[in-house]
Structures are given as structure tokens and as C-alpha cells.
Design a protein around this nucleic acid. Structure first.
Lengths: 192, 192
DNA sequence: GTAAAAACTTGATATAGATCAAGAGTTTGA
DNA sequence: TCAAACTCTTGATCTATATCAAGTTTTTAC
């Protein structure tokens, strides 16, 4: 399980043997069964979390009890609530497992220590953050400019493979539409 | 004009005199008249840009010719297209001045050099990126969960002062609604 | 293996917000 | 300083998507 993270590190950063071992020394393994929570609304998030296997979703629940999916994260991605982590305030989000999931956690103190100690690690982390920001910008742009159908086509184009492992209800929520609308769109586009 | 940026730096990072001077040595001043472009779609963005005075908007134009405002940036904020900068690809965005505007530019090579040379500067830049990412997440969340009226109230609450200096048409576009809808919302909420 | 729960589909109807249109204010620049 | 060009408002109508409802299929858990 740790090998998956090690492989990711080797691809993304040039690390010495000693640095790799230093990183591994702080890694905490965690397993989640399907539907199990990684974070619940109101808790303060304290980790940097990397997924080695499986899939989680980050979502909020509004006053009416409806869920709004903010993001999906699968193996080789990071997850967590950066706002709660950075400001040390109770999270507005829930994160739970869509499939049985395996993660590597670092407490944020340890993670920051690694960033300070290992420049290559720090650079990697910054590059990831840049890409996350760009992805968020693109999502905003899509939500402003695309129709429901275009949003769906854009999604399956950008994240092929997701559609088959994530329930449609959740994808609909992520795209900002109802499950019924997504169902109808899928029927239409299948025809073409 | 540079003093505004210097003050910003002093607040956000602990810099030695020498470091401050090093940063200043790379700064390029730029003025934009209202409606003048900082970046046009198709160009590759090559700077890190800080606004010392004024206001710019970042937007796309779709096939029908409609503009979609992605963001506003005012004095003491940064602007630019991070995707174009990072991937060195033609930008999908336009950036132009809503008011006469003054900026400090750094070519990205110089900016990266400063990040490498000055750890405190690098940390500041990362902190800004983190905050930008959190803001983007919050905007996505708002677009998924709020009604048109709630989006507007959320906007004026979060950015008081913006409403008075930015034309309503542009605010409507930023919020993902038509100017007519925003006009009606303003009329309604004024009553209450 | 099977009953209960969850996920998906389909149809009928409702609605928030878009579009179209036209008039009133406001800003801009020669 | 005044005409042209924006910007905002208001009304009438339209439409994409939501909501409600009921049936079917798939998954889950004992």
C-alpha cells in the first residue's frame, strides 16, 4: 500500500533515499469501509491525506437535508478540507468513502516539517496546489458557461472512468443538477 | 506607487532590507487606462501581476459573443492567468481594466528566481495560493448551493465595496445570472 | 437466497431565471 | 455641450431544469 505513494513521490519529486525514508517515517495508514467517514461537518481537519486505493467524496448538507458534492478524489489524489486545516476552524464538509478506500495520512505539523526540511517535497506540494487551483478555476468557468448537457459531456471527457464507479446521483450533484436531469441527458446522448 | 506593494510585502513577509531591494529590482510598473487590455485571449501570459491601484476583470467570450466574468481583482490583489502561465499555453481569458489601473509586474522567470532565493517570499506566495484555492472552492460551493438572490447577498457581504465600483452587468455575469435578474433581485432586496 | 434498501428511469407539472423588447438614466468623448 | 453609447429598469413571455410521483432495476446485508 505504501508502495503506491512511494511510486507517486518518485514520479513527482527527486528525493534522496534518506528523504524518502524521512517522509515514510511520518506516514500513517488508514482504511475506510464504503460509507465510512473520513471527516464530518463540525470537526477540524488536521491531516494531509493521500489516497492509494479507492474513492471518496467531499460534500455539504444544506438546511433542507440535500447533499451537494464538492469533489471526488480517487487513488493518487489528495483529499481533505484545506480551509478547515489552514484556519483550524470546524469544517463545513463531510468526506466519506464511496468505495473501500486506503489512505496515507500525515498530521499537518509533520507535513509542514517535511516541507521545511525537504525543498523537493515543498516544490511538489506547491505544484499540486497550483494544479488544484487551476482545476477549480476551470470548474467555475464551466459552471458559468455550460448547459447541463455540456457540463456532463465535459465531465466524462475530463474524468473518464469516474462515471462507471460513482453513482449517478452523486455525479448529478457534483455537476449542480438533479439526478432526473442527468438521467434524461444520458438517455439523449446515448442515442446520438 | 511602489510603496503600496512594499507595504503589502512588509505585512505579509519578514524580509531583510537586502531582500526587499532584490524584489524591487525586478519590479516593472505598468499603467492601464479604463478598458485597456492586460491580457487578450490567445496570448500567453508571462507575468505575476500585483495591482496597486484600480480594478481589472478576467473573463471569457463564448461562441455567441457573450462575456462571462471569471473574477475581479482590485488593489492589493494579484491577477493573471495561472493556467496559461504554468502550462505556457494560449490563454482562454481576457483581462481588462474596469478603472484606470496601476500594476507591478514581474516576469515569471524573475518571480521564480525570487521564490528560490528568498524563502520568506516563497512562503508568502504559497500562502496566497492556498487562500486563492480556498476562495475558489467556496465559490464553487456557492454556485452549487445558492439561489440567485443568495448568490448576490453572499457577494455583497463578502466583497462590500465592489458593488459600487463595478457595473451591475459584470457582477451579474460573475454570479452566473443575467443583468435583468440581478436588477430585479436588487429591487426586491432594497424593499426589505 | 432473498427481502429491504438504494439507484435509476420515465412522465406530468411547476418554476426560477432567461430572453426579448422598449424606455429612462447616465457616462463619455469630440 | 450634446449626441452617441452605454447601463439600468420594467414588463411580457419562454424555456431549461426542478419537483413530484410511481415504477423498475440493481445492490446490499443478513
Amino acid at each position: 500500500m505504501y508502495e503506491i505513494f512511494q511510486k507517486y513521490l518518485d514520479e513527482k519529486a527527486e528525493l534522496t533515499q534518506a528523504e524518502s525514508e524521512r517522509i515514510q517515517s511520518f506516514a500513517i495508514s488508514k482504511k475506510l469501509r464504503k460509507r465510512q467517514y473520513l471527516l464530518q461537518e463540525g470537526d477540524i481537519w488536521k491531516y494531509d491525506a493521500f489516497i492509494t486505493q479507492g474513492c471518496v467524496r467531499t460534500y455539504t448538507v444544506d438546511e433542507k437535508g440535500s447533499e451537494h458534492v464538492n469533489s471526488f478524489s480517487i487513488e493518487n489524489w489528495w483529499t481533505g478540507d484545506r480551509e478547515s486545516l489552514m484556519l483550524q476552524q470546524p469544517s463545513r464538509f463531510n468526506i466519506d468513502a464511496i468505495e473501500d478506500t486506503e489512505l496515507i495520512l500525515f498530521t499537518h505539523e509533520n507535513f509542514e516539517l517535511l516541507c521545511r526540511e525537504i525543498p523537493a517535497f515543498n516544490n511538489m506540494v506547491n505544484a499540486i496546489l497550483q494544479r488544484s487551483f487551476i482545476a477549480a478555476q476551470n470548474r467555475i468557468q464551466a459552471s458559468l458557461t455550460l448547459t447541463a448537457e455540456e457540463k456532463y459531456l465535459n465531465f466524462i471527457n475530463k474524468y473518464p472512468g469516474f462515471a462507471s464507479r460513482i453513482p449517478q446521483t452523486m455525479i448529478a450533484s457534483y455537476l449542480g443538477m438533479t439526478p432526473e436531469t442527468l438521467s434524461r441527458i444520458r438517455k439523449q446522448t446515448a442515442k446520438k
